[in-house]
């Protein structure tokens, strides 16, 4: 169990880093950009929320397997290693990261960004000193949700990384194994741990959201973010 937990933490950390690194720019693009194909891009990013994990896993298998000449050329031997598990977790975590951050960034009044430009700031500084700080609660909510989702990833991980104890067996997979082999005591412990962690992260996100609705808004302009963190029903 300790082994699975440590592996899960490692997979989650890497997955989260990937989801944030890709998710934040995408959120900015979707919140502030105006371009053709925007809703197409948004739909594609959100797709993992509704696709069965096995379908996502299948796509990843195709993308990184030997059948893909690009992956073969690049000498990628990703499949059935823990980085594959991290990649699968990142893909399913990305929509949560993007949705929560996009909503938070869209809430930042563009007039404030205009004011910062008038006061001598370039775009990078506007982002660093105005937009991101004002959207930080929503972004943090996205990070926590993405982490929780990555931590609990099961289906896609099973497809691309397998279920190799000590190598690719994360906590959710270990629970499945424990139940299959009738080791209910171990299953109980792990289930309790997962539940506690998930509960804690959701609770943190809720707190971010209720506070975000009152703080950081001009007087009289307190409006809860539309769609909140974009918490999907099945996350």
């Amino acid at each position: 169990m300790t082994e699975a937990l440590l592996l899960s933490l490692r997979v989650t950390a890497v997955a989260l880093a990937l989801a944030v690194a890709a998710g934040l720019p995408l959120a900015l693009l979707l919140a502030r950009g105006r371009f053709r194909g925007k809703s197409l891009l948004e739909t594609l990013i959100l797709l993992p929320l509704v696709l069965p994990p096995s379908v996502i896993g299948f796509y990843l298998l195709v993308a990184f397997g030997r059948s893909n000449p690009l992956a073969r050329q690049a000498g990628l031997h990703l499949l059935f290693t823990w980085p594959a598990a991290a990649l699968a977790s990142a893909v399913v975590a990305l929509p949560l990261m993007v949705q929560a951050s996009r909503a938070a960034i869209a809430q930042v009044d563009p007039a404030l960004e205009r004011a910062a430009r008038m006061l001598g700031s370039g775009e990078a500084e506007v982002l660093r000193r105005i937009t991101l700080p004002l959207a930080r609660r929503g972004i943090l909510a996205g990070v926590v949700l993405a982490a929780a989702r990555a931590f609990g990833e099961f289906g896609a991980t099973l497809m691309v990384a397998g279920n190799i104890p000590g190598r690719t067996q994360t906590l959710p997979l270990a629970i499945y194994d424990a139940v299959q082999t009738g080791n209910l005591a171990a299953a109980n412990g792990m289930v309790l741990l997962m539940t506690a962690l998930s509960f804690a992260s959701l609770w943190v996100v809720r707190r971010f959201e209720t506070r975000a609705a009152f703080a950081d808004r001009p007087a009289g302009g307190a409006t809860p973010s539309p769609g909140g963190s974009g918490l999907p029903a099945g996350a």
């Binding site: 007039a111 105005i130 004002l134 950081d216 001009p218």
Partner: peptide, 9 residues
């Protein structure tokens, strides 16, 4: 600006 645009944070 008309709406002040003070940085709320």
């Amino acid at each position: 600006f008309q709406q002040y645009a003070l940085f709320p944070h």
